[in-house]
Simulated scan of single mutants.
Amino acid sequence: MNRLLDPDLTRPSQNGVYFVGDADLVRLAANAVREELAVRRTDLAGCHGKAELLQCLASSLTLPADFGDNWDALADSLRDLGWLPAWGHVLLFDHASALQHGASGDFDVLLGILDDAATFAQDADRPFFAFFALPDFAPDDGRLRTTLPPGIA
């Protein structure tokens, strides 16, 4: 991702889920910290399905103790981020290709949940961004918002 094409992390109108190159996460994290946004980084290496993914997210996002360990609980937690106080949130995902290729259905559900959370935050005028590092990512314009699979809103 070219820094000139990075989304403005202070503008909820640009909220969303983005694919980026591996090297982009450090710059995006620094930008988020500079804007005083909450930043959480999740390493998806070794996540080959829903159970491992939810466990990994519970740890990296410091989800509440009563987290239900299912998709609905994750969606609810990401819509109401009161347990992670900040005026906006940036989630960074390393090694996303392993999950994308090894459990594409679970990857697609995660993208849908994050996209929903970004829309929910935009409606509340709060920044919310999720960035997935993919080693083979080569966008045409330096930035790509995900295209969600059919049936995922």
Rank of each mutant, 00 (worst) to 15 (best):
N15W: 02
N15L: 01
Y18S: 04
V20F: 00
D22T: 14
D24H: 03
V26M: 08
R27A: 14
A29C: 01
A30T: 10
N31E: 13
A32Y: 05
V33W: 13
E35F: 08
E36A: 15
L37N: 00
L37S: 05
V39Q: 04
V39F: 06
R41Y: 07
R41E: 13
T42Q: 09
T42W: 04
L44K: 08
L44G: 06
A45N: 11
G46C: 10
C47L: 03
C47I: 00
H48E: 11
G49M: 07
A51D: 10
A51N: 04
A51L: 03
L53I: 00
L53S: 00
L54H: 12
Q55F: 00
C56R: 15
C56Y: 02
L57E: 01
L57N: 02
A58S: 12
S60G: 06
S60W: 04
S60T: 13
L61F: 02
L63Q: 06
A65L: 09
D66W: 08
F67Y: 15
F67K: 11
G68F: 03
D69S: 14
W71K: 11
W71H: 08
D72R: 14
D72K: 12
A73K: 02
A73V: 09
A73E: 11
L74R: 09
D76H: 11
L78A: 08
L78G: 04
R79A: 14
L81Q: 15
L81T: 15
L81W: 13
W83F: 12
L84R: 11
P85M: 10
P85I: 07
P85K: 10
A86V: 11
W87L: 09
W87C: 06
G88Q: 06
V90D: 02
L91N: 09
D94L: 04
A96C: 14
A96Y: 09
A96V: 05
S97C: 01
S97W: 02
S97Y: 07
S97K: 09
A98C: 01
L99M: 06
Q100S: 14
H101R: 12
G102V: 01
G102Y: 05
G102Q: 00
A103W: 09
A103M: 05
S104C: 14
S104Y: 12
G105H: 13
D106N: 12
D106F: 02
V109D: 10
L111D: 02
L111Y: 06
L114Q: 14
L114S: 09
L114H: 12
D116L: 10
A117E: 05
A117F: 06
A118K: 03
A121R: 11
A124I: 03
D125Q: 15
D125H: 15
R126Q: 13
P127A: 03
P127V: 05
F128K: 01
F128G: 05
F128V: 02
A130L: 12
F132R: 11
F132N: 10
F132H: 13
F132I: 08
A133E: 06
D136H: 15
F137L: 02
F137E: 07
A138L: 10
A138G: 03
P139W: 03
P139L: 01
P139A: 14
D140F: 13
D141M: 08
D141Y: 09
D141H: 09
G142Q: 06
L144Q: 15
R145E: 13
T147M: 07
L148G: 10
L148D: 09
P149F: 00
P149C: 00
P149Y: 00
P150I: 03
I152Q: 13
I152K: 12
